[in-house]
Computed example of a mutant assay.
Amino acid sequence: MIVTIDGPAGAGKSSAARRLARRLGFRFLDTGAMYRAVTLAGHRAGVDWDQPEQLAAVAASLVLDLSDSHISMNGEDVTAAIRTLEITTLTKHAADNQAVRRLLTDQQRAFAAGRDVVTEGRDQATVVFPQAECKIFLTAGEEERAKRRFLDLQARGEEVDLAEVLRKQRLRDKGDTERAYGGLAKASDSIEFLTDGLSPEEVVDRLAEIVQGVQAHSGIAAK
């Protein structure tokens, strides 16, 4: 069974999807980490961001390995390195690169083949796994999302300004929704879930209820 969780930046998709996967006994696919890793590799290689073929070549040379809580790039654990504000801001270059998106889409489908998976991103229900049995669109208010991101960055030791985080989030939202290929969009058969005011545990409880409801309705055996 494939469960997709799409939504805008700062909605809490990664943490919610990871916790949900553990609850269900599924594998977790953090597609955002894959784009961030490509971005980190491009940044280290000094690619010209205005020359998309350079980043595509870097992406093609990478071996990405994902576990439920870590990602390695050519054998190096880059779990923390990909979460800085700098890499977050630059990730649009990987996300807007069609060659990179095609490459990572193929890798994501290969990861999920024959497995029970919870996957999160922007285009999981619309592009990567349109056949997914359960599709969820996870969202939250603009200020709520910015506050979450601000607190997360602070917890990682970065000195950030909430207004700047909100400004960059708005730019990212604009880029995500206007992207011609693989942009953020709610699939027609996705279930929308607003997380404002809910604790992480309450979010996972509700997500689990949604998945279990789909399993019951579809006759899919629960774990």
Rank of each mutant, 00 (worst) to 15 (best):
M1K: 06
I5V: 14
I5L: 13
I5Y: 02
D6A: 07
D6C: 06
G7R: 01
A9H: 01
G10C: 08
G12H: 05
R19N: 14
L20G: 01
R27N: 08
G32R: 01
G32N: 01
L40M: 11
H43D: 14
H43M: 11
R44A: 07
A45G: 04
A45H: 06
G46V: 09
W49P: 00
Q51E: 15
P52L: 12
E53L: 08
A57V: 06
S61G: 12
S67A: 13
H70F: 09
I71Y: 02
S72K: 09
M73A: 14
M73R: 11
M73S: 13
G75P: 00
G75E: 12
D77Q: 12
V78W: 01
V78H: 01
T79E: 08
A80M: 13
A81E: 15
R83D: 06
I87N: 05
T88Y: 02
T89D: 14
T89E: 14
T91W: 03
K92Q: 15
H93S: 07
A95T: 12
V100G: 02
V100A: 05
R101H: 11
L104M: 12
Q107F: 04
R109D: 09
A112L: 07
A113N: 11
T119M: 14
E120M: 07
Q124H: 07
Q124N: 13
Q124Y: 06
V127S: 05
V127D: 11
F129L: 10
Q131Y: 11
A132Q: 06
E133Q: 14
F137Y: 15
E142F: 07
E142N: 06
E143N: 08
E144N: 04
A146F: 04
F150K: 04
L153W: 11
L153T: 04
A155N: 13
R156C: 04
V160N: 05
L162C: 09
L162I: 15
A163P: 00
E164G: 00
V165R: 02
V165I: 15
L171P: 00
D173A: 09
D176H: 03
T177W: 10
R179C: 10
G182E: 08
G183L: 12
L184M: 10
A185R: 15
A185D: 10
A187C: 09
S190R: 02
T195P: 00
D196H: 10
L198S: 06
S199I: 10
E202D: 15
V203L: 07
V204S: 04
V204H: 03
R206I: 13
R206G: 03
Q212F: 15
V214W: 11
V214H: 13
Q215C: 14
A216S: 13
S218H: 12
S218M: 14
A221N: 09
K223G: 12
